[in-house]
Amino acid sequence: MEGLKECEANLVVHLHPSKAKSASEAIFSELSSLLFTYSETFGGVVLAYDPNIRSNLGKVLPGIHPHFGVSLKARLLLFNPKPNMLLEGEVVKITPQSIHAVVLGFSSVFIGDEDIRDEFKHKIKSGKEEYVSKSDKKHKIKVGTILRFVVKSFDEDILHIVGSIADDRTGCARWMNKNLDKWTQSDSTTRKTKNVDGEGLQT
Score class of each variant (00 low, 15 high):
E2T: 08
E2C: 06
K5R: 14
E8F: 15
L15Y: 02
S22T: 12
S29T: 09
E30T: 07
L31Y: 01
L34K: 04
L35R: 01
S39E: 01
E40W: 02
E40M: 01
L47K: 05
L47C: 05
N52M: 12
N52P: 01
I53P: 00
N56R: 09
G63D: 07
G63E: 07
I64M: 11
G69K: 04
A74G: 04
K82Y: 08
N84H: 09
M85L: 04
L87C: 01
G89W: 05
G89Q: 04
K93E: 15
I99F: 02
I99E: 00
I99P: 02
H100K: 13
V102F: 06
V102H: 09
V103R: 05
L104Y: 07
L104M: 08
G105Y: 03
F106E: 07
V109L: 02
D113L: 15
D115S: 12
D118P: 00
D118V: 13
E119L: 09
F120K: 05
H122G: 01
S126L: 07
G127F: 07
E129H: 08
Y131T: 00
K134T: 10
S135P: 04
S135N: 09
S135E: 11
D136Q: 06
K138T: 14
K138H: 12
K140L: 06
K142V: 06
T145G: 05
F154E: 07
D155W: 09
D155L: 10
D155Y: 09
D157L: 13
I158W: 11
L159F: 05
I161S: 03
I165C: 01
D167W: 05
T170I: 01
C172R: 06
M176S: 08
D181G: 09
K182Y: 11
Q185W: 12
Q185S: 14
S186I: 08
T190R: 15
R191T: 14
V196W: 13
V196M: 14
T203S: 13
